[in-house]
Design a protein around this nucleic acid. Sequence first.
RNA 1: CGGGGCGUAGCUCAGUUUGGUAGAGCGCGUGGUUUGGGACCACGAGGCCGCAGGUUCAAAUCCUGUCGCCCCGACCA
Length: 520
Amino acid sequence: MAQQNQEKQAKGGKDEGIATRAQDYSQWYLDIIKRAELAENSAVRGCMVIRPHGYTIWEKMQRELDDRFKATGHVNAYFPLFIPLSFLTKEEKHASGFAKECAVVTHHRLMSKDGEVIVDPESKLEEPLVVRPTSETIIWSQYKNWIQSYRDLPLLINQWANVCRWEMRTRLFLRTAEFLWQEGHTAHASEAEAREETRRMLGVYADFAENVMAMPVVQGAKSPGETFPGAVQSLCIEAMMQDGKALQAGTSHYLGQNFAKSADVKFLNKEGQLEYVYATSWGVSTRLIGGLIMTHSDDNGLVCPPKLAPIHVVVVPIFRKDDEKAKVMEESDKVAAELRAQGLTVKIDDRDMHPGAKYYEWEMKGVPLRIEIGPKDIEKGSLCLVRRFVLEQEGESEQDQRKRKKTFPPRAEALASVKKLLDEMQGQLLDRAKAMRAKRTRVIDSIADFEKFFNDEGGGFAWVHWAGNAEQEGELAERFKTSVRCIPFEDQIPAEAKGEGKCILTGQPSMHRIVMAKAY
RNA sequence: CGGGGCGUAGCUCAGUUUGGUAGAGCGCGUGGUUUGGGACCACGAGGCCGCAGGUUCAAAUCCUGUCGCCCCGACCA
């Protein structure tokens, strides 16, 4: 950003630019988060402060997801932040999977000494407490008391919580030491039912991603190497960001009887026999906000799908003199009231600033629709509607595109069209994201083409036949920084990628193609 | 955790080579003129130069340590 700002200053421009995607994609991502006031770093390494504009997006995500969880029969509950160390050691694979990234509480008291506050060495806990990296262990220790009979099943519980994973390298939203998420934990009387639940909740995530976030995803299973510690099988949704890298946007795990065994949770089935319970867990996190940014935003700032936009419409009053101001403000209030009556969130920006400055600011913050109201509009009985974005047309100048964003419909017509317009924009975002993904998706049958795709053509999703083992996957990771993102379900495979073939690396027969990509 | 870069006003950065009273632009406050794509004038507020030691008559500047941020690796949702 420094270089760009210097350029802008040299041109006499304003010191308010962000990096462009072409210049520096990761800087662009960070600039947007900062300038749209979504989040910022905190005094604690790796932990972020989610600012109101960002948190509102999360609240809207929560509402949409929670409604879907309830509609599929789940209820919310809350389990503790702290997990006794001994709990975490019960399930061996699970424990070793998280061992390297756990925060541990060892004392319970502070004291003053020589003017400083120190940890009181006398207050050492008998058993250290682990700050939850996920809650399977503590939840299942409780489920033991709740489940005796098949009549107690299925147990369908979700919790909204924070979790802590002590990451070496963090990035706002995508990977932070503490993050917010939901974790569903269900118990079932049969493997089939648990597997069905695993798949159902992945479907909920996919529906949410596409229809609320306007972010298309590929649904499938994780390779053994990427399976959740302690799970029998992990399912995932994978989205493609604008730089062609994959983002795991949600996971749903079939846990088999692993946690039931480690927590000793048995139930009496209809036949009167004791059996271990079958389990699932599934989660999405604030990482989705990172995915949202990298799917839709542009060089002017955040682009937010209307369904998640903290503000749907910003009204910018325009006036010169006091008598104009009175009329314009009155009309602005009326317009806002009529839109609010339609259930829309409307902000009137009446700050004493030039209108242009406000336009830039609200574009940066991703408000989908702007209404400019000035004396001319009142006189003509029309409104000036400005969309946050229009679909790109080739060879179009910035000026022309800006014009295309604006319309001046009669007042009544304008107010009646706002919801339709927002819906249309929601749809356009999904279409645009799908087109972007299609452009960076290839069916690939040789390592040479694979290399060309990732090294020369920018990369993306490569649909390849794969029969390699974990070690061979590692070889590709070393050479191209790619990994198996998911083993897609049959219905997720595009027509041109269907059918059997030979492994791209080993030449061994392969039943169907998988998705390889670089990943966040 | 390894390699590289950077920490000076809210932001972006000069100043560090060669030690000598802390700078610019933007932003912020007040007053006035302005307001249909980032307004202008005047006045003003704001920094123990990331932090802690050390060298020195004197440290933003030299030395040591430490913390944080960014980029690239390894690890990960």
